Simulated assay, not measured.
Amino acid sequence: MTHNREDRPGRVLVTGATGFLGRAVVNELTARGRPVRVAVRHDPGDWPAGVDIAVVGDLGPDTDWSAALEGIDAVVHCAARAHVLNETATDPLTVFRRANAEAAVHLGRQAAQADVRRVVFISSIGVNGRETHGVPFTAHDAPAPHSPYAVSKHEAEQGLTAVAAETGLEVVTIRPPLITGPDAKGNLGTLARWIGRGLPLPFGLVNGNRRDLVSRDRLAALISDCLDHPAAAGQTFLVSDGAPVSTRGLLLDMAAAMGTKARLIPVPPALLGSALCLAGKEAMRSQLLGDLEIDITHTRDTLGWRP
């Protein structure tokens, strides 16, 4: 595989560009003066000036990326199946694998064939595990994915690493924790809606846990840095804002940002945890009551990056 174009930094293809993170990546790249093409299922319009649009249909192992990849220098792969709060699939792992692992590897192979230089793959801190117990996750930990989603992301990482070894494609992996920002998805979005409605929330005493988060715009900036940094190729980077918060602290911050007050009820965390487990909400219990600390030393030292 050869790279002899002289016009780099060149055009970037952003998949999942209509999503919560993808939109921020597009905005960050265009603000930096980078030419961008967005890959979308349907074009909603309202893109920054100069953005190319490629309609590619549904994400899967048979998606035809050839037209979208024409003339592309690098890819940011944000598209994924995620934030499934009420899973209806009878075999979630198979569905996640198709949309996340098989689709990513297929894109990687087509990117290599199209002489794309680098792919920045957005994975998940869930590849490291569900929660920490006094020792933060690092980029060098043995993977311990804890859910079908995290397993599919880990398999995507492995598949893209194999493609890189076979073809010379440069792959950069980023594993973010929960991403914050306006209109956040998943459980964070649910909490924001509850705060906005003034509902009482039983987290007034959940002030001892420590969870690392990352803001959407800060993550978008790191992604942009990883497109060209010479030391990034072949690396896995963990990312956070560098300031762990408790669930109580997070809710108070969210309410302040929304211009309202959080109604927090002082329920003992042990009682709350037991109730969530009895309700079959172990993942939610972990997110709301457990620790998830991230060591970003490798990211700082390799990229000279500061959150």
Rank of each mutant, 00 (worst) to 15 (best):
E70P: 00
A101K: 01
A67G: 06
W47C: 09
M284E: 12
H77Y: 05
G16K: 09
V119W: 05
A68N: 05
P177N: 09
R130N: 09
D43S: 10
P143D: 06
F96C: 09
T173G: 03
P182D: 14
S286F: 09
A104F: 04
G234L: 04
P9R: 02
V12E: 06
L169F: 11
T30C: 06
R216K: 14
R118C: 05
G280W: 00
V25E: 02
V38Q: 01
E6Q: 11
R34P: 03
N209R: 09
G234K: 02
Q110I: 06
T173Y: 04
V84A: 01
C78N: 13
T299G: 01
A114S: 13
L59D: 08
W65H: 06
T297Q: 12
T167M: 10
A31Q: 07
R300Q: 13
I72F: 06
V56I: 15
S286A: 15
G259N: 10
P136L: 14
Q235K: 11
V120G: 01
L59C: 05
V12W: 05
V56H: 02
T302A: 13
L21C: 07
L278V: 00
I122L: 12
A233M: 06
A54C: 08
R81D: 14
N128M: 11
S123K: 02
R11C: 08
E170I: 04
G186K: 03
A232C: 03
H154Q: 13
A162G: 08
E6G: 13
G134P: 03
H106W: 11
M258T: 00
S123T: 05
T180P: 00
R41M: 12
H229C: 10
L178A: 15
T90H: 14
S152N: 09
G259A: 10
L160P: 03
P307C: 13
E157V: 11
R130C: 03
D183Q: 12
E293L: 05
L213I: 09
A54L: 12
T260R: 12
W194I: 09
T167C: 08
A257Y: 00
A39D: 02
A255C: 11
A156T: 03
G16H: 10
S66T: 14
I294T: 13
A101L: 04
A112M: 07
D225S: 11
P143L: 03
V116Y: 02
G208I: 11
P145R: 00
A233H: 05
D183M: 04
A164P: 03
E6A: 14
G186D: 07
A162L: 11
V12I: 15
A283I: 14
